[in-house]
């Protein structure tokens, strides 16, 4: 359990740094007008800038959620043990392996990043990448529900 505690502390730092980075990007980009300068014009431009802000805010909110969760876990042995069991439960691990949840995370984050970069140049590429992310997530979720039911 001590090793897991160290892992949680490392995650806490990583989450904090990531949340601060996202916040800084949002503040610097918004205040300096960099986002507006390079954002495409028209309806797509408005949608794209809204999407961009939405993604960054979602990441920040997720980071805050996990930060609070990790702080609570570090202060309570019972919560820490529950979290450890939930993460290392052999059935859940097997379902994750069968559904490819790890692969989904590895593939979707770079795709999302690529979609945001592509959005500055082409609406078609942006929507294609978003559709791919949506499809991968949908298939993974459906498979997860299926395996949860049969296992």
């Amino acid at each position: 359990m001590e090793n897991y505690k160290k892992i949680i502390q490392q995650r806490l730092w990583a989450m904090g740094l990531f949340a601060m980075s996202c916040g800084s990007i949002c503040l610097v980009g918004g205040a300096s007008g960099l986002f507006e300068k390079y954002t495409p014009e028209g309806i797509f431009g408005e949608f794209f800038s809204g999407f961009q802000v939405g993604v960054i805010l979602t990441f920040i909110l997720l980071c805050v959620f996990f930060l609070v969760r990790y702080i609570i876990a570090l202060n309570s042995e019972k919560v820490l043990k529950e979290m450890y069991i939930k993460e290392n439960d052999e059935r859940s691990v097997k379902i994750s392996e069968l559904t490819g949840v790890r692969l989904q995370k590895i593939v979707c984050f770079p795709l999302l990043f690529s979609a945001i970069i592509a959005g500055y140049f082409s609406a078609e590429v942006f929507f294609t990448l978003i559709a791919v992310i949506f499809f991968i997530s949908l298939v993974t979720t459906a498979r997860k529900i299926y395996f949860n039911k049969i296992m």
Binding site: K81, Y84, I85, K86, N88, D89, E90, R91, S92, I150, M151
Partner: peptide, 18 residues
Amino acid sequence: MAVGVTRQTITSIECEKY
């Protein structure tokens, strides 16, 4: 809790699903 798995895993083993 004693064996380090979730309740769902015990349920699945008891139901012969896992």
